[in-house]
Amino acid sequence: MNPLRRIGRAALAFLNGTGHFVLFMARAVSHCVRPPFYPRQVIRQLIDIGYYSLPVVGLTTLFTGMVLALQSYSSFADVGAETAIATIVVLAVTRELAPVLAGLMVAGRIGASMAAEIGTMRVTEQIDALTTLSTNPFKYLVVPRIVAGTLMLPCLVLVGDIIGIFGGFLIGVYKLGFNPGTFIASSWDALETIGVISGLVKAAAFGFTIAIMGCYHGYQSRGGAQGVGAATTNAVVSASILILVLNYVITELFFSR
């Protein structure tokens, strides 16, 4: 085939896909503010996304805080190590690591399950059945997931912030032999509102991204088990990449001078 034609075809397919996605997102968001609402579905998703992701997010941020303290000690072993390490742990965890790592872990856990569940519902005609039972599938399936994702990720990240800093404290006090009082005081001093807020804003954006990607790819899936498998992969990969891109964009918005 003519290479120009191939490029043209790929470009058209990309634009077509982007247009589809933007329309899907606009439709989903518009349904978020128009009744009827399904509070039972929202609560189910809040529990699924928030409560059941706690162990994963907790473990991830705990070890991240611990490894941060350990790594930075090797660089700042001389003067003022206590203050430097506490500052590094607090800033890195609240600004970057808790939101990004929690986002990536939840993308794997929740994005995949959303795409698989909605994709299976699509290929087994359950989504068509919703329509014939006078229920808008957008309102019943997509909206609760988006609302729950956007609300729960900041909560998870807040918990992750605390556990991550606690991880740094554990290593600082029990392995590196710092004074616990000094370490806590230094951590408290290093804590800044803008860092925590930016982390929570990121988390909300990541939660929205994970949910919309899971729903979109699930909703579009075609062709049985293979289609659902592809939808799951696409949901996780696209959400993970978007999380990293959005992380840069939001950091730029908050911290560039």
Partner: peptide, 14 residues
């Protein structure tokens, strides 16, 4: 759709 009922081929139960 409130006037319709539908039996799907694969049952399509939730």
């Amino acid at each position: 759709m409130q006037r319709f009922g539908m039996l799907f081929q694969g049952a399509a139960l939730f």
